[in-house]
Design a protein around this nucleic acid. Sequence first.
DNA 1: TCCCAGGCAGGGC
DNA 2: GCCCTGCATGGG
Length: 220
Amino acid sequence: MNQLPLYKKLLKHFGKQHWWPTTTNNPQFEIIIGALLTQQSAWRNVEKAIENLKKEGLLTPKAIAETNIHKLEACVKPTGFYKQKARRLRKFAQYIQKQYSGNLELIFSKPLEEARKELLSLEGIGAETADSILLYAAEKLIFPIDAYTTRVCERLGIAKGNYNELQHFFHSNLPKNLEVYKEMHALIVELGKNYCKTKPVCPSCPLRKQCSFYTSKTKT
DNA sequence: TCCCAGGCAGGGC
DNA sequence: GCCCTGCATGGG
């Protein structure tokens, strides 16, 4: 099964999503900060937090590694779970600073599976966050599976299973193209944010005719 | 007022 | 392995 038609349909409907937005000259590290902060919180609140960090000069591994934890907590407060996020952010910065002198390329240039395992071993980095970092910061061909992706796949009836199974599905059915991977993940999130909520079908969803609730329970 | 947001970790079973 | 809970602020 080729998922390029789905990609084109979503792209036409929603337009380019321009993920992952960054504002500094250290985009890789900023993407990682965003990936940790956006967990279970809206992106607009992440933007507030990153703006706070920028004002305090806290957008480099060295600065975050050395900062006072309470200052960091105040910056990331808008994203919620601020104590654990501040701690995870500082621990990550300290790790990168100590092991690699702040140079992320030294991790990203490792073999993909090795880099992924290393990220997963750090506090606060699970499968989705690791894969988002690898796709958007390291620019590796790896597809993140988030809650929206699971929900959308189920409702469209295109795939089901655990994280690894869904990821394997996309790896097998998407063209091996970095921009497609980046855009497809963002487009699925956009679809999930707007639709896949009501039953039996979301009236204005561009994919409503493919929705399992539509085809099984609604006629014409 | 209630529910959700671009999850993760730790516990129980 | 899967399911549950705590973590917490901001916006609809």
